[in-house]
Design a protein around this nucleic acid. Sequence first.
DNA 1: AATGAATGAGCCTTCATTCAT
DNA 2: CATGAATGAAGGCTCATTCAT
Lengths: 176, 176, 176, 176
Amino acid sequence: MLELVVQQGIQATPMSQVVKESGVAAGTIYHHFSSKEEIINELYLNLKIDFGKALSEHLTADLSYKEKFFQTWLNLYDYFCENESAFHFAEQIGHCTMITSETKQKGEIHYLPIVEFFAQGISQNVLREMDLKLMTNLIYGNIVTAVQITLSGDLIMTKDRLYSVIESSWDSIKKH
Amino acid sequence: MLELVVQQGIQATPMSQVVKESGVAAGTIYHHFSSKEEIINELYLNLKIDFGKALSEHLTADLSYKEKFFQTWLNLYDYFCENESAFHFAEQIGHCTMITSETKQKGEIHYLPIVEFFAQGISQNVLREMDLKLMTNLIYGNIVTAVQITLSGDLIMTKDRLYSVIESSWDSIKKH
Amino acid sequence: MLELVVQQGIQATPMSQVVKESGVAAGTIYHHFSSKEEIINELYLNLKIDFGKALSEHLTADLSYKEKFFQTWLNLYDYFCENESAFHFAEQIGHCTMITSETKQKGEIHYLPIVEFFAQGISQNVLREMDLKLMTNLIYGNIVTAVQITLSGDLIMTKDRLYSVIESSWDSIKKH
Amino acid sequence: MLELVVQQGIQATPMSQVVKESGVAAGTIYHHFSSKEEIINELYLNLKIDFGKALSEHLTADLSYKEKFFQTWLNLYDYFCENESAFHFAEQIGHCTMITSETKQKGEIHYLPIVEFFAQGISQNVLREMDLKLMTNLIYGNIVTAVQITLSGDLIMTKDRLYSVIESSWDSIKKH
DNA sequence: AATGAATGAGCCTTCATTCAT
DNA sequence: CATGAATGAAGGCTCATTCAT
C-alpha cells in the first residue's frame, strides 16, 4: 500500500486517489494511519531505508576509497533514476511541512554508514576537512542535480557525462 | 503587489491567504491577473530578473576569473539568504506544473551572462570541459545546499565554512 | 434526493441552496453526482420518464381517438399543474446549455408513444397531414400556455375554459 | 447600448461583458442605470415596442380578417427569425424574476392593438368565444413553437410547412 | 477489521456594484 | 459626466477525515 502512494508520487495526491488505487476503503486506511501526514511520514521513513540499502550495494572490500565513493554515488543515482517517483517524492518532502523533525531524525539513522564513510575519508586524509553535514549535503545535491537533468530529458546523460559529474563531485571534497 | 505574494513564499499558499496578506480584495487581484497561475508565472519571471541582477553585482574588471566566480557564487548565496521567501519560492517552482515552458524560457534569458561566464572559463582553459547545463546546475545546486543549511539553522554558517564550500564548488569545475 | 432538487425548481438555483434544502452536505451531493450538470441531466431524464408515465394514464381501449387526445392533453396539463416545480424546471431546461444532446435523445424515447399516437391519427385520416415534430410541439406548446396561465393566477381556469382550450388544440390538428 | 445587450442575448451575460462590448466604463453604465435589473427591464420594454411595431406591418385595409391574422402571425414570426437574440431574450424573460410586474404591465400596452384585433374577431363572429388572454397566449405560443423549430434547424421550415402551421393556428380559434 | 457514504471547511474564481479620481 | 480599479459575497467543486454499519 505504501508502495502505491509512492508510485502516485506526490503529497499533492488526494487521498481519494490513494483510496481508489489502493483498492481499500477510506475508512480502512484511517484504521491504520491516523492522518495523511502519518502516511507521508511512514513513506518517508520507508524510502530512507530503501535509500540506505541502495547506498551500500556493490561495495566490496577490494575497492579503493575513491572507487567506493564512485560506487556509492552511482548507487544513489541509479536508484533515483530507476525509481523516479521515489525521487520526486523525496524532492517534494524537502519543501513541505508534513514531515516532522522527529521523522527526519529517524530517517537520518539510515544514512549513518555514509556519514561514517565520509568521516573515515577525512580522518584518513583522503577527504578535506569539512563539516560532515555540509559535505554530505553537497554531494547529495550533486547527485540530485544529475538525476534532475537525466530525468528532464534536456540532456542525454551519457556515461562520459555522468563520470565527469562524479569526478567533479569527487574533486570538490578530495584532499588537494 | 508581486512583492507581497513573494513574501508569502509558496505557490501552495491559498489565494485566500494571498488576499488577506495583500490587504486587497479577491476581485482586485483578479482584476490584474487572470489566474493564480498567471500570478505565479509573473512572480517567477520577476524573481529571475532579480536573480540576474544580483548575480552580476560587485564584479569589477580587476578581479581574476576565480575571484569573479567566488563573487558570483556569493552574490546568489547572499541574495537567497536575504530573500528567504524568494528562495523557498524558487525551490518550489521546480516541482510544480504551474510554470509554463514559455515562462521558463523567458526566465533563462536572465541567466545568459552566467552561462557565458562559464563558457568563457572553459574556452580560456580555466574550467574543465563539461556540458554547460550540467556545470551551471551543479554549481547552482551547491549554492542551494549552502543556503538550505544556513537557513535551516542546523549549522552556523561561519565565514570559514562558507568559503570552504565555495572552494569545493570551484574545485569541482576548475581545470586540474 | 432528485425529488428535492426538483422541488427547488430551477437550474439557476445555486448548489449552496440545493445543499441547504436537501439537508446534506455539499460533499455528499458530489459523492453521488460528479457535477451540477450531471444532476440537472439526471433530473431531466427522470422528469421525462414521469411525463411519459403521466401521458398514458386513463387511456382505456373504449375511448375514441378524439377522447384519447383529450385525455392525453389533460394528463400532461394535470401533471404540470400538480407538479409546478417540475413544470418550471422543464421550461428552463429549454434555454440552458447544460442538457447534453445525448440526454435529450434519451429523453425523447419516453415520448415515442405519443408521437406514435399522432402518427396513427394521421394515417387513419383523423388528423391532418403535418410534420410530426411540428404537430407535437404545437400541441405541447398549447398545453404549456394553458398551464402558464393557470399557474400565473391571472385567470381562473374553469372547466369550461380548459375544455375550450383543448377543443382549440384539437381543431388545430384535426382533419377538416 | 441597449441594442448591444440584446445582441448578447441573455440575462446570463455578465455586466463585465456588457462593459467590454459597449465600449464604455462600468461606472458610466451605472450612471444611466441603477442596476442590471433596470437595464433588463428597459430592454424588455424596448423589445415590446419593437414587437408592437412589427405586428402591425403590412396590414392594409383591403385585407380580410383571416388575411390580417395571417399577416400578423407572419409579422411576429419573421421578426423573431430575423432577430434571433431578441427572441431568445424574450424567451428567457419569462423564466426570470428580474422583470417587475410593473414593467410587464407597461409592456402589454404595445399589444393592445392585437388584443383589440382579436376582440373584434370575436364580436364579429369570425373567431370563437374565448377569453382574450387565453386566445392571444395560445397563438403567441404557436408562433414561438414555429420559431423554435425553425431556429433549432431540426426541421427545414418550408413555406408549405409554415402556412400549414398558421392554418392550424387559425383553425384553433376561428368560428366553426 | 473493513466499509464507503457523509461531512464541511476551504479552494479558485466570477460578477454586480461602488467610489475616488 | 466618465473612468476603471477595487470590492467581497457567492459560485461550483475538492478533499482530508469521520462514523454508523
